[in-house]
Nucleic acid binder design. Structure first.
Length: 852
RNA sequence: GCGGGAGUGGCGGAAUUGGCAGACGCAGCAGCCUUAGGAGCUGCCGGGCGCAAGCCCUUGGGGGUUCAAAUCCCUCCUUCCGCACCA
């Protein structure tokens, strides 16, 4: 560390001093504040650009993994500003959450104290890196000014039946002592926060938001995101929503007086003549009735108990052997009238479909395995259309192919294609009232109740007389009690605060109890980006006109970890807000970018893994600019980046090199006041001038392309390094080159670096004689004329192999070039004694001669 | 099992989207400068053969299309990620 400081003193590049200096100036000049939302017709206005990085949870320390995310966003914001956009680039805090509560319990303090201290720290670090945020728009989700709107939205959803309460089996994390959403159960049964803790099932009354009301829209609108969102994320969401088209079919139960029919769900009603059993989930409500009075009741009960408490881990589920037993009862196939044995099977899930299936061993692999094990018969009812004939006894796997098959052994439906059969048989089932076509989704409603303190109170009151009564809007926000008793155990801490709980019913005025659950913090982050448009609004979550101006978000940037949770909830919330009339669009995020993780030792940087490189230490050691540059240079942004202490040196050296270059040459050029170089003035230019300008503008062309279309910051930086190397090779610069040209070239280097290493760029810009800051400067115009060359180098291949290179005048004709090739000492031997049978000429680039 | 990526020197990675593979950087080697260098500057740096000019091989393996393939097609392998008994 010390050596860098002493080094910087010697060379003059002192990143810390430069960075602090320019951060102060930016702040004083308020250069990152977006302009007002002007959409006055006829008035020339800048186009808007809303770029956003996912808001952080303020905990622990910011490390270079975080910084990568923010650096990418900052480069985009700065490029767009230079390109004349009205840019909104805000930052805020996802400030509610369990860690704050746990830390408060541990340190005997208040979650707010802990959270606000972290926010202060985060602000400091983000400022130290010079990110161009509009801090006027900062929000913190734990403030009543923010969370009152969570409550407001909740009431709106309650009115519309989109929020409801029901007793349900929930995912309970014994460590968090709270309920988890389905999406928060990871690795097939573990808490997303405690990956070593198995989630338990518990029956509690919970609040839900009806995400399933939007299943179809959430799925359908994914189409509009194609191209703007990573395919991977779209696919993950599509699978998560999990649409299946099929049919419900009722099978009457034989010989059980008064028993309801068993409803099964199938996507292959066409195979119903091949059903040889029904299989129910162990916790299917009809199971007790069916096994009542069975001869082997004890044995059955033991098996049932075993199945019900079997591991909920999905790996186990997927690999567990199929188990089941016969109930001794029968069901009637409504199509064929056939009597089918009813089984209970461990692979049938109560949570999906109806909790009961028909087993078609010949055409479903799971049924096939189950029936082989228990020696149930299989019956082929679909034969492949290609003529091969399936025979039950010879099958080694089920024939499942949907697209090519013809029905056989299926009564009146024999000979139909699968699709035709599905349509006809569904219609028949509907007509005869024993079934209907149905589409089901894997997506579940969103359980938002949390038995925790540090979250948004759910704004309802429980009255013995009136039941659930919403808190009137005028009484919002329902404030969190200031001094809760936090234990981290059992029911919500709010329940043990009598002055919070005991209220009067807004409806009847009688005694009532306030709801003590708080909302899942994913509620906070589902709409926060709308609040940035209008962060201080006390009348509404945001002003409609402002949201209409800024939305949708042009570019959202964050980790792939939020591919489902946050992004799905956000999309849901957007649709609800649209239906409330607050906005008119259906998708909040136009483009999504998921950056790769920063790893060290092959593992993602994280405090718990103990492999973090702190952002502040980085800034102290090399400066924020070097930190930014390295994270951009080491890998393309979508890829994971392995942190290397050694490689950073390269980025550090490069900035020093540029700094020294400008430092040396600035005195000779700083008085020049001319603008950009134009072609006319180059009529008498020297070779050196031409070469410098050509390289500089060629670099500009490529860097602009990398910024605009590909986000390949790593290759953009490589291009600038190459240009710098070229300039170094041409020193002393002003010998044989006019100062104007030298200045032009050095300025281009500076401007191209500006979005990535803004502090040192400002400093260089000042050294080059400018009195106005870089923020007043537009992205430089690429001058194609300057890149044009009189001579070109053309690669000559013989039979596809490079045999030589020819210098020729631009746009040389093919004939002339072939003559040159034939005369060339390196190429001629490869042509000797052979006939040219074909010539391929890519103008000014390549000539391939095919000889025999 | 299903879905989506990825495979290029010792390492991170580049290749204008079918046109000179290995840009740029790290590490390494050599030289210069220096009282000194963990600074700076210059050069070398995929493999094989060769004194050299040069020739051959090389983008996970194999096959194909093409004048031309890291890039397109087929096939296999490895690896990462997501979902996973979803009826």
């Amino acid at each position: 560390m010390a050596e860098h400081n002493s080094q910087s003193e010697r060379t003059g590049y002192d990143p810390k001093a430069i960075e602090i200096k320019w951060q102060k100036r930016w702040e004083d000049a308020r250069v990152f504040e977006s302009e007002a939302e002007t959409t006055t017709p006829g008035k020339a206005t800048k186009p808007k650009y809303y770029v956003l990085e996912m808001l952080p949870y303020p905990s622990g320390t910011l490390h270079m993994g975080h910084m990568r995310n923010y650096t990418i966003g900052d480069v985009v914001a700065r490029v767009k500003r230079m390109r004349g956009f009205n840019v909104m680039h805000p930052m805020g805090w996802d400030a509610f959450g369990l860690p704050a509560e746990n830390a408060a319990i541990k340190n005997n303090t208040h979650p707010r104290t802990w959270t606000n201290a972290n926010i202060k720290e985060f602000q400091k670090v983000l400022r130290r890196f010079g990110f161009s945020y509009d801090w006027r728009r900062e929000i913190s989700t734990c403030e009543p000014e923010y969370y009152r709107w969570n409550q407001w939205f909740f009431l709106r959803m309650l009115e519309r039946g989109l929020a409801y309460r029901k007793k349900s089996r929930v995912n309970w994390c014994p460590k968090c002592c709270t309920v988890l959403a389905n999406e928060q159960v990871v690795n097939g049964g573990y808490c997303w926060r405690h990956e070593d803790t198995l989630v338990e099932a518990k029956e509690i009354s919970q609040w839900f938001l009806k995400t399933t009301a939007y299943s179809e829209q959430l799925l359908d609108d994914l189409k509009s995101l194609e191209g703007g969102w990573p395919e991977r994320v779209i696919t993950m969401q599509r699978n998560w929503i999990g649409k299946s088209r099929g049919a419900r079919v009722k099978f009457a139960v034989a010989e059980v007086a008064g028993a309801d029919a068993i409803e099964i769900f199938t996507t292959r009603i066409d195979t119903i003549y091949g059903a040889t059993a029904l299989i129910l989930a162990a916790n299917h409500p009809l199971v007790p009735r069916l096994v009542e009075g069975a001869a082997n009741k004890n044995e059955i009960d033991a098996k049932l108990a075993q199945m019900r408490q079997a591991s909920t881990k999905t790996e186990d589920l997927a690999t567990a052997e199929k188990e089941g037993f016969l109930t001794g009862k029968y069901a009637i196939n409504p199509f064929s009238g056939e009597k089918l044995p009813i089984w209970v099977g461990n692979f049938v899930l109560m949570e999906y479909g109806t909790g009961a299936i028909m087993a078609v061993p010949a055409h479903d692999q799971r049924d096939f395995e189950f029936c082989r094990k228990y020696e149930l018969p299989a019956r082929v009812v679909v034969q492949p259309a290609d003529g091969q004939k399936l025979v039950e006894e010879e099958m080694t796997a089920a024939f499942e192919e949907h697209d090519k098959g013809i029905l056989v052994n299926s009564g009146p439906y024999g000979g139909l294609s699968i699709d035709d059969a599905i349509a006809k048989m569904t219609a028949v089932a509907e007509k005869n009232n024993f079934g209907k076509g149905e589409t089901i989704y894997r997506l579940k409603d969103w359980g938002i109740s949390r038995q925790r303190y540090w979250g948004t109170p759910i704004p309802v009151v429980h009255c013995e007389k009136d039941g659930i009564v919403p808190v009137p809007e005028k009484d919002l926000p329902v404030l969190l009690p200031a001094n809760p008793k936090l234990t981290g155990m059992g029911e919500s801490p709010l329940a043990s605060t009598p002055e919070f709980v005991n209220v009067t019913c807004p409806k009847c005025g009688g005694a009532a109890k306030r709801e003590t659950d708080t909302m899942d913090t994913f509620v906070d982050s589902s709409w926060y980006f709308y609040r940035y448009c209008d962060p201080k609004n006390a009348q509404a979550p945001f002003d409609r006109a402002k949201a209409a101006y800024w939305f949708p978000i042009d570019q959202y940037i964050g980790g792939i970890t939020h591919a489902i949770l946050h992004l799905l909830y956000s999309r849901f919330w957007c649709k609800v807000m649209r239906d409330l009339g607050l906005i008119t669009h259906s998708e909040p995020i136009q483009r999504l970018f998921t950056q790769g993780m920063v790893q060290k030792g092959g593992v993602a940087m994280s405090k718990s893994k103990g492999n973090v490189v702190g952002a502040l230490e980085m800034a102290e050691k090399y400066g924020a600019d070097t930190g930014r540059l390295y994270t951009l240079f080491a890998a393309p942004p979508e890829k994971d980046l392995e942190w290397s202490e050694e490689s950073i040196e390269g980025s550090w050296r490069f900035l020093n090199r540029v700094y020294r270059l400008v430092e040396r040459n600035a005195p000779a050029v700083r008085e020049i006041r001319s603008g950009r170089i134009d072609v006319a003035r180059l009529a008498d230019s020297t070779e050196k001038e031409k070469a410098l300008l050509r390289k500089a503008h060629e670099t500009l062309r490529r860097v602009a392309r990398d910024f605009d279309t590909r986000w390949h910051f790593n290759s953009a930086i490589a291009q600038i390094m190459e240009l710098t190397n070229e300039i170094y090779a041409r020193e002393p610069l002003t010998t044989g080159a006019r100062p104007e040209v030298v200045k032009e070239v050095l300025e281009l280097v500076t401007l191209m670096l500006a979005p990535m290493t803004p502090h040192v760029a400002e400093e260089l810009w000042e050294m080059l004689g400018h009195t106005k800051g870089l923020w007043t400067v537009s992205w430089p115009e690429f001058n194609e004329a300057l890149t044009r060359e009189d001579d070109v180098e053309i690669v000559v291949q013989v039979n596809g192999r490079v045999r030589g290179k020819l210098k020729a005048t631009m746009d040389i004709a093919e004939e002339g070039l072939v003559k040159m090739a034939e005369a060339d000492a390196a190429i001629a031997p490869h042509l000797a004694g052979k006939a040219i049978v074909k010539r391929v000429y890519v103008p000014n680039k390549l000539l391939n001669l095919v000889v025999t």
